[in-house]
């Protein structure tokens, strides 16, 4: 009987641990979705901006073309709000960058990008606007970031407004595709990725890697 009691208490302990992990989610992670594409772009100051420059930083991307009428302003507004919230917090580690990529390099010169960045209230240290060689944009934005866009005969574009969050490894950790999400949610996600990058060392790394195995703990 004593042995049975021991067995039951062991089972109880294991059950409590499992339930606690599922219910309280002591560690939360975002899934590692896919590698973000490698790229070399030119920003609003005419500077090179490559995927290597962003290694070690958390990056939020959005995609647009500058002659886009009002609907595009909605993702830009989300980017602006994210920038504002991040600016209010103490300097995050790892650093966070915002990148707006134009898939219309023929029209969106660095000067046009700079004007758009200023209009959006972008802090140049944190938020850069960039575009690249016309023949590579489909590869980077379409295939790489998995964002659909297509030029209409009138020169406008059809595209799916998307924001993509990439970690310091260059791995996509979140995609926001259905309408612009609240800035609040994105900032929370950025915090999760930043926490993982900071804390996932030594024994804690095991706990983080274990958490990646449990789908129920993903956000």
């Amino acid at each position: 009987m004593a042995r049975a009691g021991l067995l039951y208490s062991a089972i109880l302990v294991v059950t409590v641990v499992i339930v606690a992990l599922a219910a309280f989610r002591p560690i939360r992670v975002l899934p590692r979705i896919a590698p973000a594409p490698g790229f070399a772009l030119t920003d609003q100051e005419g500077q090179r901006l490559t995927s290597e420059d962003l290694r070690g930083k958390i990056v939020l991307y959005d995609f647009t073309y500058l002659s886009c009428p009002s609907p595009c302003a909605r993702t830009t507004e989300v980017m602006r709000q994210v920038q504002e919230r991040l600016a209010r917090e103490p300097a995050a580690e790892p650093e966070v960058r915002l990148i707006t990529i134009s898939f219309d390099p023929e029209r969106d010169s660095p000067a046009a990008l700079r004007a758009a960045a200023e209009a959006a209230g972008a802090d140049p240290a944190r938020w850069r606007f960039a575009t690249g060689a016309p023949e590579l944009m489909k590869l980077i934005v379409g295939a790489g970031f998995n964002v659909f866009y297509e030029r209409n005969p009138d020169g406008s574009f059809r595209f799916d407004p998307t924001l993509v969050l990439v970690d310091g490894w260059g791995i996509v950790r979140a995609e926001y595709r259905v309408g612009p999400p609240p800035a609040e949610q994105i900032v929370n996600d950025i915090r999760l990725v930043a926490n993982e990058a900071r804390r996932s060392r030594g024994p804690a790394r095991l706990a983080y890697e274990a958490t990646h195995l449990f789908v129920c703990n993903v956000r």
Binding site: A36, A40, S51, L136, G144
Partner: peptide, 30 residues
């Protein structure tokens, strides 16, 4: 090659600044 590389998160670009043997190529080293 660029198609394969980009999809795997690798970028590369020929550099104008040369070494003795000609040009260098910047690339992701992952």
């Amino acid at each position: 090659i660029r198609q394969v590389a980009t999809g795997m998160g690798v970028y590369f670009e020929k550099q104008q600044r040369g070494s003795a043997g000609g040009y260098l190529v910047d690339h992701t080293a992952t």
